[in-house]
Design a binder for these strands. Sequence first.
DNA 1: ATCATTTGACCGCA
DNA 2: TGCGGTCAAATGAT
Length: 459
Amino acid sequence: MLSTAIVHQRDLLNLVVSHYPQSIVATPIADERIGCGVLTPEFPISPLVLQELKAYIENSLNYCHLALCSLREINLNSFTSSPSDSSPSTLNTSMRSSSAVEGQFPPGWNTKFFDVTNHAKDHLSPRLNVVAPLNSLRSSLHKDPLPYHSITTKGNGCTPRNSGSPRFTDPFSQPPPGEGSSTQQQHPHEQNLNTRLLAVDSNPPWPRISSAANSEARKFGGQKAKPGVVLQKLNDGKRGIPDDGHRGWKKYGNKAIQNSNHCRGYYKCSLKECRAKKMVQLTDRDPTLFEVTYVGKHSCSSSTAHPRCRHRSTQMLSSSLVHVGSNGSSEGGQATSTVTKEDRAEDWKTQRAAASIGTNLVVDVSNPIIDNGWKGGKYSNEHNYSYSYFNMGMTTSTTASTASEEPKQCEVGEGDDDVDQDEEGDVCMDTYLHQSSRHHQAAYSLWHDFDTYPTLSTD
DNA sequence: ATCATTTGACCGCA
DNA sequence: TGCGGTCAAATGAT
């Protein structure tokens, strides 16, 4: 798309020859009409084809705008320090964004905000528009007297508006099957964009686990939330399994599961004394969405454990997690964390700092409970005991849910030959996982390079 | 050579 | 007995 917007003579000629071989006619026309100096007498082209090319080029220009706007919005996220700032008021958001961005662009760049209404969506974000460079190209196109199929723009023309032109062939504008539905089908690129926009500007910006989890679970599994399970989006542009902030996972098995189109992968923490595991399986409904079941806790997360195997909570920037297992059962969200208060405070400070310096980390300040990156931890004696990162696109939020009942206390050592107690004496409530612990795990001589792995502060 | 992943076999549980 | 979790040798990647 972008490459075709950069119209050089040779490129355009190649485009014409490859796509419109029938257009080579005997009558040459004035090449300056297209404004790009494209044609040569050796390659005359029909006015009709010129019209099409013109529309094609402008189409590309419009999406250059869109790309620029997207980039500016990502940049804009840096200025949104907390979801509480994300007012539902478009005007307020625009004003705030405008002032926040002021001074971020070179002189002469036109920065304006306007609402986007060409696609029906639940939540729309004001788009930051940076139009000056492309407007010059656009205006040269508009000067052309040819009756091309135009993409009508309103306001400053940041986002293309498809005003009924049947030839508007942008890759993003597949008409949604349903109106105003968040589940409408969109091009993946637009989905990403909208997700990010929604993450910044919707109100409330961060869905609480209880509703979001069950909603997602119903959407993808037709059932209520399962304990200990999260739905996690594959990272943008990456393959494999989604990043959950921990690099020390080692795959130890893969299994085809009945009534499922995808195999389930089995992972364990590569630190041999650590017994955290997870199972990862693609959902059938969405091949980019993983159902991740976390089992056990990281003994390596305690302050006395190997510092290289600590969590990477502040780097969970690009994966998307939806917790679907916070029902308060003994399987999911009740483990007593071994993360110390100092760790939590440090995490919190780190996240706040990251949010303030523009790493697109947005933290819900109304819930100062910092996830350690794993499911099932508990950081306080409050009733909030299950939580997860809720991460949409480029932004991350920490959320917490409140149980409808008090979490049950778990007995130490229940169901296992190992005492689930760490060196600080905290009870570890991963007693549900030890079916296979009789099998002594062979000593893997596989160790990750944790040295590149930022560690949180140690005691 | 080292390390990560794959894969068939094995095992326990329902 | 079948399914799912795990093991560990084989294989692939770097």
